[in-house]
């Protein structure tokens, strides 16, 4: 099969890499047409990726396993990249600024590259613990949270790189959106991510209660998701009540994402627990 899902999905890696490069050129050299090209490339990559994921689902049915492609590390990385692009494209459409793409597309590219070159892409059957309708709800909600936090981190980095707005739009960094807008976007994406992380943790608890009889067992993955939740809860409270904004929140968006990364990978590779199938 030429158009197997693995083929399509490894193709996506290069499309996103191209898009990331175009976004970078657009930002550094401020060429509007290149920006448009970057957006088109991202849409194209997204379309190929969507069909790749759908095809993988169909292939699993053909093999007699029949499950949503959300069951191992390869599939979760592909999905993470897909959701990240989805969230990014939404923000781009909403605020009509493309410079953010230079900080968002790399996340999608890294994720796809890791999936394509660093993990086993064979379709595996679902082990009994994963045979549940909660699988889709749990993974989709968690990854909406993770992807939003990735974007928030990218925005936070942009905020820290950028000098004060008053110094005008000089140099490379001057081309970035205004700090006030970046700050607001970091805040909004954190709120959005926090909601989905909360729902993700809750659906996980409901599922665990159905599979193991405990909605919370302080398994490392669970605990780390809670740690991540605490970090972002801190960010939201510090902003609302103590008036934290700008640099402090930008830093928290990065710390929060480090915690997300650890929840996602660190737990699988360094610690053992109920989510160990995520590392295969």
């Amino acid at each position: 099969m030429t158009f197997s899902s693995s083929y399509l999905l490894s193709l996506v890696t290069f499309v996103y890499l191209g898009a990331a490069a175009l976004y970078l050129i657009h930002w550094v050299f401020r060429v509007q047409k290149v920006g448009l090209l970057a957006t088109l490339a991202t849409y194209a990559g997204f379309a190929i990726q969507t069909s790749g994921i759908a095809l993988r689902w169909i292939e699993s049915h053909r093999m007699g396993y029949g499950h949503a492609p959300l069951s191992n590390l390869y599939e979760s990385l592909v999905f993470f990249s897909w959701v990240t692009v989805l969230v990014y494209l939404f923000i781009e459409w909403k605020i009509r600024r493309r410079e953010i793409g230079a900080f968002a597309a790399p996340f999608a590219t890294f994720s796809m590259a890791y999936a394509s070159f660093g993990t086993e892409d064979k379709i595996q059957p679902l082990i009994p613990a994963l045979q549940s309708n909660w699988l889709i709800a749990h993974v989709v909600t968690c990854f909406l949270g993770y992807a939003s936090f990735a974007i928030a981190c990218g925005l936070g980095i942009m905020y820290l790189l950028k000098k004060d707005d008053s110094r005008g739009g000089q140099g490379i960094l001057g081309g970035l959106p205004e700090k006030k807008l970046l700050d607001e976007l970091v805040h909004q994406t954190i709120i959005f991510g926090f909601l989905w992380l909360s729902i993700g943790i809750i659906t996980g608890a409901v599922w665990a209660n159905e599979a193991w009889g405990t909605y919370w067992s302080w398994d490392p993955k669970e605990t780390w998701s809670l740690i991540t939740w605490f970090v972002y809860a801190t960010a939201l409270h510090a902003r609302f009540v103590r008036g934290w904004a700008g640099r402090k929140i930008a830093f928290l968006s990065i710390i929060g994402f480090v915690s997300v990364i650890f929840t996602y990978f660190g737990v699988n590779f360094l610690l053992s627990g109920l989510h160990s199938y995520g590392s295969q």
Binding site: T223, W224, H237, V241
Partner: peptide
């Protein structure tokens, strides 16, 4: 004080790490 709330959130986040290691 909300300062206590923020302090507790951070403390819970940091101490919780111990039990995962």
């Amino acid at each position: 004080s909300v300062r206590l709330a923020v302090f507790l959130l951070i403390t819970l986040a940091v101490t919780s790490i111990a039990g995962t290691i």
